[in-house]
């Protein structure tokens, strides 16, 4: 039912699924349980997100380097070889920012808000692109100015249909980010979403916690977590 990487036929590049062990399974059990209180939901989501971010960072390029230890010996190490930034998809993606900051000191984080267009019933980028409310200069401010030269950790906890995240990637590509420099990090992914997204952007790396069974007719992930943003920010009805 869950974390079954083998059951999905995903022909594309790389989908990194967090290595399943008792702890990871235990964390998923806590956050998927509808009885879990919000403070616990936040605490255990944060723990899981930290692990996912660490996993995501492993997709980045490294270069070898030697350092001298206080004992005077040489340690053959590696160092981060690229500039990175985070981009969270508002609102649920913002729940992953704390985890990102806990792992990456002083990281720049851009934001993208994508809303459902009531006329077309399709996702539409509201922010940073909405010409009505935001001038061109302000628009630039919502993402790091030099984002084109950076690797981007794109944050959104759920990959359901993949429509929203695809829109977000379009924004990034328009801003000059290289497709292969985007790492999309989420907690739970539906096979339908993975198929849709990877067909569109085969060079984007995907890091996920567990791959679920399917989407239901309301496009909810099954068995899923529910509305991640609502549960994290306490806005469920």
């Amino acid at each position: 039912m869950s974390s079954s990487t083998t059951s999905t036929s995903t022909p594309q590049k790389e989908i990194v699924v967090l290595k399943s062990n008792h702890q990871v399974k235990g964390l998923f059990t806590l956050i998927r349980d509808r009885e879990t209180k919000r403070e616990d939901f936040i605490f255990y989501s944060d723990r899981l997100i930290r692990l996912l971010i660490e996993e995501g960072l492993n997709c980045l390029p490294f270069s070898e380097t030697n350092v001298t230890t206080p004992t005077g010996a040489t340690y053959n190490g590696v160092s981060f070889a690229s500039k990175i930034c985070g981009v969270s998809i508002v609102r649920a993606g913002e729940s992953m920012e704390a985890g990102l900051r806990a792992v990456c000191k002083q990281i720049k984080i851009g934001k993208i808000l994508i809303q459902r267009d009531e006329e077309t019933a399709r996702p539409k980028v509201t922010y940073p692109r909405n010409q009505i409310y935001i001038s061109k200069e302000e628009e630039e401010d919502k993402l790091p100015a030099d984002i084109a030269n950076r690797h981007v950790l794109l944050l959104d906890p759920m990959l359901a249909t993949g429509g929203t995240v695809a829109q977000a990637v379009e924004v990034l590509l328009e801003r000059g980010v290289k497709e292969e420099n985007i790492i999309f990090i989420n907690l739970v992914a539906a096979p339908e979403g993975i198929r849709f997204f990877t067909a569109k952007f085969p060079k984007v790396s995907i890091v996920t916690g567990e791959i679920d069974s399917n989407l239901n007719d309301k496009k909810y992930i099954i068995p899923g977590i529910g509305d991640f943003g609502d549960r994290y920010f306490g806005t469920e009805h």
Binding site: H22, Q23, K25, G26, R32, I222
Partner: peptide, 22 residues
């Protein structure tokens, strides 16, 4: 923590689905 003993736990998700957890 992964080396500690765990047991199976079945829960229901907010979308009324059963999830076999630990």
């Amino acid at each position: 923590l992964t080396l500690l003993p765990f047991k199976e736990k079945v829960i229901t998700t907010p979308v009324n689905q059963v999830y076999k957890g630990e």
